[in-house]
C-alpha cells in the first residue's frame, strides 16, 4: 500500500494488540499529521495507553502496521524508536527520581551529543563543556516553563510536587527534540488552575517550536477542547469516532460510551 502524503507523521493501520484472549486494541486505524495535535480520548481501559506503549515499542504489535515518517516501526526497540524521534511522557510520571531536576533534563538531551562511546569517556574537558552548555540550554527552556523550577536546578526530582514533576517531564521530552510527542494524561491529579497553567505552558512551547506532532491522552475535556486540533475516540480497543471536538461532542456512539445507553 503506497501512501506518499508527506504530511502524515504517524499512521497506524489496522493494528491489533492481543494480551492472551483480550484484544486491547482491535483494528484501530489512526493518523496524526505533522504539526497537529490529536486528542485521544475514551473511557478507562479503552486502549489509549496501550496505543502509546505499542507506538513506543514497549509492547510488540500482534497485527497491523505503524508507519512513522513512512517507515515501519513495528518490531523496533524503544531505544530505536526514540532515536527516530518519538518521545513520550508517562501517565504516572516517570522521572529519574533519584536524580536532580537538571540531571533529568540533561538526560533528555542524551541523544544529542555526537561522538563515539569512548570519546565521551576520555575527552573529559570537551565532555564537561558539552554538558555545561547543554545544562545552560536546558535551564533556559525550563525557565520559559517555570522560573521557580529553573532557579533550583539541583533539587531531587522525588521532592517535587506533582505539577512540577509533569512540567519537568514535558520539558525533558521537548529537550529530546522529538518529531512526535506523546503526552499521557498530563493533567491527571491536578486541580483546574494547575491544569490550565500546564495547558498555557504547552501552548507556549508549541508556538516556539515548529513542526511538532502531538498525541495527547486526556480525560479533562476542557484540555482537549482547548488544544486538540482533532479528536479520536477509543472504546473497548476500537476506534468509534474521530473528527473535530464539536463533532465528537455530538456523536451518539461517544455519548453512549461515556454515559451508557439511554
Amino acid at each position: 500500500m503506497m501512501n506518499n502524503k508527506p504530511e502524515k507523521l504517524l499512521e497506524a493501520n489496522d493494528i491489533v494488540m492481543k494480551f492472551g484472549g483480550l484484544k486491547a486494541l482491535n483494528r484501530v486505524t489512526l493518523h496524526v499529521n505533522e504539526d497537529e495535535v490529536l486528542g485521544l480520548i475514551g473511557p478507562n481501559g479503552s486502549g489509549k495507553t496501550t496505543f502509546f506503549n505499542v507506538t513506543t515499542g514497549i509492547y510488540r504489535l500482534t497485527e497491523g502496521d505503524i508507519l512513522f515518517a513512512n517507515r515501519s516501526i513495528v518490531g523496533k526497540k524503544p531505544q530505536e524508536i526514540a532515536h527516530m524521534g518519538i518521545i513520550r511522557t508517562f501517565q504516572t510520571s516517570r522521572l529519574w527520581f533519584d536524580l536532580s531536576v537538571l540531571d533529568n533534563l540533561l538526560l533528555g538531551m542524551y541523544m544529542r551529543p555526537k561522538g563515539s562511546f569512548f570519546s565521551r569517556l576520555f575527552q573529559f574537558e570537551k565532555n564537561r563543556k558539552e554538558i555545561k552548555n547543554h545544562a545552560i540550554e536546558a535551564l533556559e527552556i525550563l525557565s520559559v516553563f517555570n522560573k521557580e523550577l529553573a532557579d533550583n536546578p539541583y533539587r531531587i526530582a522525588r521532592e517535587l510536587a506533582l505539577v512540577d514533576r509533569r512540567r519537568i517531564e514535558i520539558c525533558r521530552a521537548l529537550l529530546a527534540k522529538p518529531k512526535l510527542l506523546l503526552l499521557d494524561e498530563p493533567s491527571a491529579g491536578m486541580d483546574p488552575s494547575e491544569t490550565s497553567e500546564l495547558m498555557e505552558d504547552i501552548k507556549k512551547l508549541r508556538a516556539k517550536k515548529e513542526k511538532l506532532g502531538i498525541i495527547i491522552i486526556e480525560h479533562d475535556m476542557t484540555v482537549i477542547s482547548s488544544i486538540a486540533d482533532r479528536v479520536a475516540v477509543l472504546n473497548f480497543g476500537e476506534k468509534i469516532a474521530q473528527g473535530s471536538f464539536e463533532e465528537i461532542r455530538k456523536n451518539k456512539l461517544v455519548r453512549e460510551a461515556y454515559l451508557g445507553r439511554e
Partner: peptide, 17 residues
C-alpha cells in the same frame, strides 16, 4: 549520568534512547 538513569528507571531510559 547514563548509569544513574539506568539505575533509576530502565523503561524511561529506553524511551529516551
Amino acid at each position: 549520568l547514563t548509569w544513574n538513569a539506568i539505575r533509576d528507571d530502565e523503561i524511561a531510559s529506553r524511551c529516551y534512547g
